[in-house]
Design a binder for these strands. Structure first.
Lengths: 244, 244
DNA sequence: TGACACCGATGTGTGCAGACATCAAAACTC
DNA sequence: GAGTTTTGATGTCTGCACACATCGGTGTCA
């Protein structure tokens, strides 16, 4: 691989923290990381700085590099999400993402119906039809690509950059659940139609109908996947007060 | 001044990029940054690495450090949000945040009604009552603190870490709109009651009522603030396809 | 004798300076 | 115009000085 030492160092330590291999409160020394990773101080230091900005570690003089509790991790960082999706904590991460999508996508659909440029509207309709066709013929690979494209264009068309930024996370979610065999051989006929309904509502500028179709899609997705995380305990992030 | 050089370097360059002082595509040299900031190579390099992980810049061999378009910035990073809120692009940032909150908080209210631990439920009720009192007496400072606390506890009680992580952003939003004089002297009486309704619905485990109250609050907040950003153009983030 | 305050030794992150390696753009050669 | 060399930037490594929190010893006082 041509990945840089810097990148590999981040990947190595980040992964070990997310998986719990390096537990909360664990203290490492920069020198020790140099030896473990067989890299120089500069590489370690730059990697630690990045991990620090992700909320994974903090550096304390005279102590070392301490692993922070998961409540401090930035749950929106693409890297953090990827690491969590490929670790044991996958269930909790998927649930968080689905709940977020369920909240955001209907709102995005509404905004897209109001604001999206014409090009994105027609693109969305085209993708929806192609998606329905792919669902019928049973082409799993193509279906996944179109599914990702559909939701990406929808989020992009909302004109809200924070919604749009969830594209990547949605792609990871959809890919992940396909890879882990959580998809049926033939998609639900109703869901396929709802995608078309949603696209046409956006194209027609019908915000209410767009939201409605999106809510139906997300409800079905949630109910289909909820059984995979019933055992996952909920984590309650403590409220951090700024003032004294 | 106890802030580290590393931190100051990030702050300096990050701010200049967000404000547009360093425009998209602008290329800097590491050596040039050393001179500008009067710091050593290692400080510059570590700062650049962090900015890179935030999507603000990319480094290209033989070229330099190039500023990335705003569509590549991580809009969920607390630092990026803070920078944007204190720059000219504040309007667009506020709109994005409000739209996100409008989508997320009703869902969070629903989840909190279903899952929140007893302690958070009763705390939410207490805060809601105190908030109503502060609204009546007109204590602006106290009102702001309680408002932040209320929404933080609600998000925390949802048991969804991605929802909970929005606490910080919400605090910034509420503080920002108070600082910029967008708050009325006396809060809307209905809104005060809705907060109490929301808290009691969560306490009673009534998910539908909780969502309903939250939607009312967010609708009112949105309509009150929407006039401040009517002139802001929408930005449509292009869809980034992964594969070839 | 015991408790407490002080103070220096120690270890570790922070910041600095200089060197070589690597690699891609640009210039050059044929 | 294709292939090669040069050039100039980041990438990586290393040794050093400094700041500062922690720990342990020492001295003082009750």
């Amino acid at each position: 691989m041509s990945t840089s030492l810097h990148h590999r160092a981040i990947e190595n330590v980040g992964t070990r923290i997310i998986t719990g291999d390096l537990p909360t409160g664990h203290v490492m020394l920069a020198e020790q990381l140099e030896e473990e990773l067989k890299v120089s101080r500069s590489v370690v230091r730059e990697a630690v700085r990045v991990l620090q900005s992700l909320g994974l570690v903090e550096t304390i003089k005279r102590v070392g590099i301490r692993v922070l509790p998961s409540s401090r991790w930035n749950p929106y960082d693409p890297q953090v999400i990827r690491w969590r999706l490929s670790s044991e904590g996958r269930g909790a991460q998927l649930r968080s993402l689905i709940e977020l999508r369920s909240a955001v996508e209907p709102a995005a659909a509404e905004l897209a119906a109001k604001n999206a440029p014409a090009g994105l509207r027609s693109e969305l309709v085209d993708i929806a039809h192609a998606l329905r066709d792919a669902g019928h013929t049973g082409d799993g690979q193509k279906f996944l690509e179109l599914d990702i494209a559909f939701h990406s264009v929808l989020l992009s068309g909302s004109g809200n950059e924070m919604f749009a930024n969830l594209m990547g996370q949605v792609a990871e979610t959809l890919t992940g659940r396909t890879v882990h065999g959580l998809m049926p051989d033939h998609p639900h006929e109703g869901a396929l139609q709802w995608h078309v309904d949603l696209a046409e509502a956006v194209a027609a500028g019908d915000a209410a109908a767009a939201r409605d179709a999106s809510e139906r899609i997300m409800r079905r997705t949630t109910s289909r996947l909820s059984e995979t995380w019933t055992d996952q305990p909920r984590v309650f992030i403590p409220v951090r007060r700024t003032g004294a």
